[in-house]
Amino acid sequence: MDLKDRFDQATSGGPSHPPLEERLHHGRRAAGRRTAGRALGGIVVAATVATGVATLSTGQEDRATDRPAPAVSSPTPAPALDIPVTASMENWEPEEWARMNPRTAELTVRRGVTATNMVDPAIRGFTSVALDLTRDGQRRYVLLVRRQGIVSVSWDAPAGRTLREFVADEQDPMDSLPIATVRGTLDASLPLVGYRDGELYTVGGAEIVRVVEDPIEGFCAPNATAAVELLHEGVTYFAVLGDGNCGSSFSKLGDVASLEAIVARRRANIDWAADAQGERQRKELEREVAEKREQSDRR
């Protein structure tokens, strides 16, 4: 059994959920607090913003602005790039210098950060930007990539590389794999095979013996999926995996008998999870209906 299956089973069960009304009550109460806080703090906020604009307009570093950031579209590197600066310091992680909006791909940099070079797109086929940034005299390359609505960011010192060389170094496909697999007693210590963007990737030295495409109807839809048998250092491994974050199954010969066996096990787990989820939702709805009926009867 692989680590994912172990997690699935170790986290099953648990006590009943609180009633939906209780969940909503917490939210409504927080919304009420927030509204009251805004009304009280309105004057203070306005004064703070005015001070902030005055400070920034002295032109110390960048063109700080709190207007919506326009999308970055320049395809060629250019010095002193006109990337909007986010004036607010709110919600920036300490090491975060640049950010891409996951929905619109709009790009902003933190106040005090200057961009001098850009590669856009950094990775063919993806909304992605590589930036050459400087902050407080420190220089850094940053790569922002949007995949399936999630923006990932990585960075490094230039270390004598061009910006494009940095992008190439960041593009080890095995790092992009959705999960690690089969090695060691936990069966999850080293990635051997993964599915990403329509391609199967393997580590060097792993040989794909057999691939069955889309072995389980509905698994990870609408992404492509595959069952894979591969050979690595004399050991046969099996995987059922998809081109998305759907969870994958891995095992090796001995723990399961064949590729067909791991596919059957995965199918059984999916069926069980769907049944269990459906049953819980059904009970939840029945209880809510009963509660509403009871309240209505009381009235």
């Binding site: 994912k4 990585s154 759907c246």
Partner: peptide, 26 residues
């Protein structure tokens, strides 16, 4: 461990989720 080895996020996605860099994730 939970994000990467149970939920199946990649190194990059895990780093983005936790606000840390990829080397730290590894």
């Amino acid at each position: 461990v939970v994000l990467r080895h149970w939920l199946g996020l990649s190194v990059r996605e895990t780093a983005a989720e936790l606000g840390i860099n990829e080397g730290t994730v590894k």
